[in-house]
Amino acid sequence: MTGAPAGLTLLHTSPVHVPVFEALRDRDHPGAVLRHLVAPELLERARTRGPESVADDLLGLLADTGGPVLVTCSTLGSVAESLAPAVGSPVLRVDRPMAAEAVRAGPRIVVLATVESTLAPTGELLAEEAAGRPVAVRARVVPGAWELFEAGDTAGYLAAVARAADAVTEADVVVLAQASMADAAALVRTPLPVLSSPRLGLDAALRLHLRPARAGAHAGRRGSDRGKV
């Protein structure tokens, strides 16, 4: 990552995501420079007033990043991507590469989330990545899981997500819609593929970081080259 002093910027809405992406960097991309911005208040407002309500604040946070940005909050992802032309750098939502892989896995997709506000943006993203191919998306909120997350009960949170994934039937793939759910994939017993976003999103964002000039056009078009990151 030499020659790119600003590094890759990651925008989080919870500090718990920072060590997750640091560990992925250390394992898969040693030497990559990550810069973390944490803004939990954006998710709280987006949940109550809608994602568009945080657009101005998002633009203010991202305008000075000086390079590609990975947004790790699925609720804010669509709004953040739409700001790429104003930011002047590629902006990638962490779940876009996961969505591309999900539609390749098969048309019957079950989306699990722990906050309601994530479901609509994830469904819209899957439809974008399907690019006209028929997909049947079923979306479910894991009951009680978010309360466990907010209480700091990470083990209970992940166990609840894993139980929900194991209960899925008649599907080709299970999508864990939020980055905070990723570690539940290691706990599931279902034979179905269970996809999470952090590894795929970081891999794609670091590719953008290595070729920002070429990638800027992609990020500004939002989906015209779907499935290629």
Rank of each mutant, 00 (worst) to 15 (best):
Leu192Asp: 06
Thr65Asn: 07
Leu195Lys: 00
Val194Ile: 09
Thr48Ser: 15
Pro30Cys: 11
Ser196Lys: 03
Ala136Cys: 12
Ala120Glu: 15
Ala205Ile: 03
Glu128Ile: 12
Pro5Ile: 09
Arg96Asp: 01
Arg25Gly: 03
Ala177Leu: 05
Cys73His: 01
Glu116Gln: 14
Gly31Cys: 07
Ser53Tyr: 09
Val174His: 03
Arg140Ser: 14
Ala86Cys: 06
Val18Thr: 10
Asp26Val: 05
Ala217Met: 14
Lys228Ile: 13
Val69Glu: 03
Thr9Arg: 02
Glu41Tyr: 09
Pro19His: 07
Asp56Lys: 14
Leu176Ala: 05
Leu34Lys: 01
Gly60Phe: 12
Met1Gly: 14
Val142Gly: 00
Ala80Gln: 06
Val111Ala: 03
Ala127Trp: 11
Val168Asn: 05
Ala6Val: 10
Ala179Ser: 15
Phe21Lys: 02
Leu11Asp: 00
Ala182Lys: 02
Pro85Met: 10
Leu125Tyr: 04
Ala127Thr: 14
Gly67Leu: 11
Arg133Ser: 13
Glu170Met: 09
Ala131Leu: 13
Ala159Cys: 06
Ser74Ala: 13
Glu129Lys: 07
Ala185Tyr: 02
Leu208Ile: 08
Ala99Gln: 04
Ala204Asp: 02
Leu119Ala: 10
Pro5Phe: 10
Arg138Met: 06
Ala6Lys: 09
Gly31His: 11
Gly223Tyr: 03
Ala131Glu: 14
Arg108Ile: 10
Leu187Asp: 02
Glu150Ile: 10
Ser89Thr: 11
Met1Val: 14
Arg47His: 12
Gly50Lys: 04
Asp153His: 08
Val87Pro: 00
Arg138Trp: 04
Gly7Lys: 06
Asp203Tyr: 03
Arg96Thr: 03
Leu58Trp: 02
Arg207Met: 08
Arg189His: 15
Ala205Gly: 02
Ala6Asn: 12
Gly220Val: 11
Val174Gln: 01
Ala55Arg: 15
Leu187Ser: 03
Met181Leu: 10
Gly88Gln: 05
Leu8Met: 06
Arg49Thr: 15
